[in-house]
Computed example of a mutant assay.
Amino acid sequence: MSIKWNNFQTINYMKICFLALYNFVNGMAYDIMKEQAFSLMTSSKLWQWTDLCKAYLVEAKWYNSGYIPTLEEYMNNAWISISAPVMLTHCYFSSTDCITEEALECLEKYPNITRWPAVILRLIDDLATSSDELKRGDIPKSIQCYMHKTGASEEIAREHVKCLISETWKKMNKDLAAADSPFHRYFLETALNVIRMALCVYGHGDGHAGQDSRSRSRVLSLLVDPIPF
Results as ranks from 00 to 15, higher is better:
residue 18 F to Y: 11
residue 26 N to F: 09
residue 37 A to G: 11
residue 74 Y to C: 06
residue 53 C to Q: 10
residue 101 E to N: 11
residue 34 K to P: 00
residue 25 V to N: 04
residue 132 D to M: 12
residue 76 N to R: 14
residue 217 S to G: 01
residue 28 M to D: 03
residue 201 V to N: 02
residue 191 A to L: 03
residue 189 E to M: 08
residue 87 M to W: 07
residue 125 D to H: 09
residue 29 A to R: 10
residue 119 V to T: 04
residue 87 M to R: 06
residue 213 S to L: 14
residue 147 M to S: 08
residue 105 E to N: 14
residue 1 M to I: 04
residue 183 F to A: 04
residue 167 E to V: 02
residue 77 N to E: 06
residue 82 I to C: 14
residue 144 Q to I: 07
residue 200 C to F: 12
residue 47 W to E: 15
residue 54 K to F: 10
residue 115 R to S: 01
residue 127 L to C: 00
residue 94 S to A: 15
residue 175 D to K: 03
residue 223 L to G: 05
residue 178 A to E: 11
residue 45 K to T: 14
residue 10 T to H: 10
residue 223 L to N: 09
residue 98 C to M: 13
residue 23 N to P: 00
residue 51 D to A: 09
residue 176 L to E: 03
residue 171 K to T: 01
residue 54 K to Y: 13
residue 16 I to L: 12
residue 214 R to Q: 14
residue 165 I to N: 07
residue 139 I to V: 15
residue 187 F to V: 05
residue 145 C to S: 05
residue 25 V to H: 03
residue 185 R to C: 10
residue 227 I to W: 08
residue 125 D to Y: 05
residue 183 F to M: 07
residue 6 N to D: 12
residue 47 W to G: 05
residue 223 L to Y: 15
residue 98 C to R: 14
residue 179 A to F: 04
residue 216 R to H: 10
residue 56 Y to A: 09
residue 204 H to Y: 09
residue 28 M to V: 14
residue 45 K to P: 01
residue 170 K to Y: 06
residue 202 Y to G: 06
residue 121 L to C: 13
residue 190 T to M: 13
residue 214 R to M: 10
residue 149 K to Y: 02
residue 132 D to L: 09
residue 58 V to F: 04
residue 32 I to Y: 03
residue 44 S to T: 06
residue 183 F to N: 05
residue 150 T to N: 11
residue 111 P to G: 05
residue 200 C to S: 12
residue 128 A to C: 00
residue 206 D to Y: 03
residue 118 A to K: 02
residue 130 S to G: 04
